[in-house]
Design a protein around this nucleic acid. Structure first.
Lengths: 219, 219, 219, 219
DNA sequence: TATGAATGAGTTTTCATTCAT
DNA sequence: AATGAATGAAAACTCATTCAT
């Protein structure tokens, strides 16, 4: 029993395990962002996290799983940010939509690592052919968010703030636009065309919301 | 003695070579769409195209090159569609914007393969670190399109149709939104939530354009 | 539970690893000798060594590295043989030169594998263009040997045994001649012309040394 | 029959063929020197020589053959140089040996391309396993040269100029030494240690010949 | 639990040679 | 005689995953 000093400490308690697991997740997130999914090997992750290759497989089924778990986490963060932004009573629907957009932007700005792996990176679809149980969960999460927005739009229509549009269409439109703005922002940012991301996003949102306001003319 | 279109024919004339080249490009496009970039091997492409491995390298420098060439082609198609859509004299700026969006939608609907490899797929960034000569061209192409839109917006502002907004911001906003809509459409389409893509896209655009029209109120 | 020397054993201890590493080095040396550098593939080495392809890369960076390591080892053996041969006190310079030659011959005779890869084989220069860190070390080793000989010649001149010739020229001459003799011996040996290599080498050396002795007439 | 202007001219006459053949040989020699044997592809040779890939195989059986033919040519040149150097009547044996060495040096200095492919470059032996008919001829040539030297030594011994040594041993010794000197010269030349190759070679030869002169003492 | 050596299928790419034209 | 498109068997190297310890 004299190995204590040099050997790596085993995760005896459940919290030790959690710490190790977290470390692996964080390291993977960082590397997926920097090197891409394909460009990140398990060995890179484990080495940087200070564990052995084999240990990785004690915590995760494989490379795909850890990637999907990170996406899951990201979606949860985003969902919570959006919920928080909408939780103040007495907001108008427009203000709520604005808050949702703001939350998405915060997610993009404050959790770029999570944002980027879901939107920018993409995996050779082959990897996902089989293990799709979690993929289902991921889609569910995305849907939850959309449903939240839809409910806000519905409320806005109900109280006369907004035009009576098809709520699901308007929801996807809104979300798609926000998404598109961020993707473009990200893309152009790298090309140094956009510097003030913040403004860029607000301006886009502004135009969009005006389009939803009542008293608009048809094309 | 007509060789017709059967395989295993030696490409003697330059047009034979063009046909073979096209076959390879088309096959690659198909596979990139189905399996992703990383998930598609040279062998898959050549086997499906009915040529040997070596032949591939007779026509292309490597996997990266064929991928970039396909992107280039896609961008060209899109650019031409947009130009065509705008080429009618006597259109209002609003109508022109509408036409641009319509062209983008047509691109998405009629050339889904091209659309998908540029927007949906993404490559392990590593592969593109070095060979960036063509990458430069690709960025230029994307820019050309944005500049086109910007000029339309500017014209709309000049003739009083549109609010005097920052044209570059509005351009990126518009494009980003269109992009985002299509991405979402694509994503949701797979989940079978959206069936009438067409309507969905039009509705989104409608909302957007109203936001740009004059006489809008500020948030 | 002694694992003995059977294959397919996991190298747990560091000495196990050393054994496996050695096995790979020895196998490579053998194959380089028999098939040449280009004619030897990694697969040949690993198959003969009883490990998988991947294992090779666990121990060496690549084919070039293992080749250079073998050259390095060979040079070290030669250097040690020469040092040993000269280490007896009270030898005349002539005797020392003779001992050096003898050591070189021993190297040729007892470590033919090492001898051959450095002198006979040659690599497609392309492979060595870049990775030259070790190549530098290899050149240094070769130089060390030449400097050793030079010092012996200098001593011989200083004590009047030898003609006062340019020591560096004489050194390279001596070494080149030894080298040439062995190369010819090797070449002819394959053609079965020379059987008594030993004598052949001694005779050559004899002639050479007489040329260096004092009291010689000029041509 | 209107293709005359643009098409490449066919080798109608036998001399046309010879010219094309020579061009291929010369180009190959140049490239083998610069890129090494493995580093030179048939395509490189044909492109530089201005013919098509297929044409190469009209003139040569393959890559190995052209390499061996070049070696053959080189040996012939060397043999003729040596013959020429010895052809003057009334030379002493010592002078003849000196002349042979000079001829070898001239070969090295004036036909470096030929010299280098035979001594410095080497081929993965695998390539030579089968096609050894020509290899036999090459060995014969080398032998011819050695026999020539042997006859000179014999004459020198017969007329009392030289010690009565074993002529074959002395021959191989002499030749091996010359060879070794040039190899070292070449090697060190690249490392910039030797600048005056000429002197270096003469000095080595000088030492050697003195060793063969009569009235030498035994070791 | 934890390790990390071992695996081997899989990938991109090269090139001597062939053969239809 | 000449072409050059086509071939396909290598080759070097990678890496997710396994499993003996």
């Amino acid at each position: 029993m004299t190995t204590a000093t040099t050997m790596k400490i085993r995760a005896r308690s459940s919290s030790d395990k959690q710490i190790k697991r977290r470390k692996l997740l964080d390291t993977a997130l960082d590397l997926f962002n920097r090197q891409g999914y394909q460009g990140t090997s398990i060995e890179m992750i484990t080495e940087k996290a200070g564990v052995s290759t084999g240990t990785f497989y004690l915590y995760f089924k494989g490379k795909v799983e850890i990637y999907q778990l990170l996406n899951f986490e990201g979606n949860e963060i985003l969902f919570r940010l959006i919920e928080d932004a909408m939780s103040w009573p007495g907001m108008t629907s427009i203000a709520r939509l604005s808050a949702i957009a703001g939350a998405y932007y915060r997610y993009y700005a404050e959790y770029p690592g999570y944002y980027k792996i879901s939107s920018i990176l993409n995996i050779g679809q082959k990897d996902f052919r089989r293990k799709s149980e979690m993929q289902g969960q991921l889609n569910q999460q995305a849907n939850q968010i959309l449903r939240l927005i839809e409910s806000v739009l519905q409320a806005g229509i109900d109280n006369g703030e907004l035009e009576p549009v098809d709520t699901w269409q308007a929801t996807t439109a809104l979300w798609g636009m926000l998404d598109g703005l961020l993707i473009l922002a990200e893309r152009e940012h790298q090309n140094l065309i956009i510097d003030a991301c913040d403004d860029f996003f607000k301006q886009g949102l502004n135009i969009l919301i005006h389009g939803l306001l009542k008293r608009q003319d048809a094309v």
